[in-house]
């Protein structure tokens, strides 16, 4: 926890400096007739971020925050592997939307998550893996008219569009 607190503060401090530098690409001072320049608002706020991060680092050295005194691990190994598994599954799902579309990715995600992480029965898994995309289709595409990305499966939906839209 101690190491995580310091690492996070340092990473956020670097991010602040980066944001300050990027904000400074626009005028950050007073532009005659226009008031404060376009970069001023994010620049000064990034400076506030930097000050806060340094403040946290100082507090870490003085051991004032509870995290900087804690001896507990930031992650224990069991939850770390679970979180990595879940985040990995999410990244794979969002990534696969680009190729097989929402209606390909959702069922696969359900099967993986419920069957292999959650250890649910195959019946429950399959019911949801089918019901979720069907509900999504009717609620978002038909009722709300939001076209979701379909990737390579786009052509399969033409008959459905003809029926419902």
């Amino acid at each position: 926890m101690r190491r995580a607190e310091l690492s996070m503060a340092i990473v956020l401090a670097i991010l602040s400096v980066y944001l300050m530098w990027k904000s400074a690409e626009l005028p950050i001072g007073w532009v005659k007739g226009d008031g404060p320049g376009g970069g001023a608002f994010p620049f000064w706020l990034s400076l506030v971020m930097l000050v806060c991060s340094i403040w946290t680092i100082v507090r870490w050295f003085r051991r004032t925050t509870p995290q900087s005194r804690s001896t507990e691990p930031y992650f224990d190994s069991q939850s770390l592997s679970l979180i990595i598994l879940v985040v990995g599954a999410l990244v794979l799902m969002v990534g696969s939307i680009h190729f097989i579309g929402v209606y390909g990715a959702i069922p696969l995600f359900f099967v993986f998550y419920m069957r292999f992480i959650g250890r649910q029965t195959w019946t429950k898994t399959l019911v949801l893996a089918v019901a979720a995309p069907v509900f999504t289709f009717f609620f978002f595409e038909i009722l709300l008219h939001i076209t979701l990305p379909k990737g390579a499966t786009e052509t399969l939906f033409y008959p459905l569009y003809d029926i419902f839209m």
Partner: peptide
């Protein structure tokens, strides 16, 4: 929760896509 979690994840992803329709 292992049923609720993927449902919420999927809702989040579709809900995150809906306002701007941008991956």
């Amino acid at each position: 929760f292992s049923i609720l979690a993927p449902v919420i994840f999927v809702l989040c992803i579709v809900g995150g896509y809906a306002p701007t329709q941008d991956m």
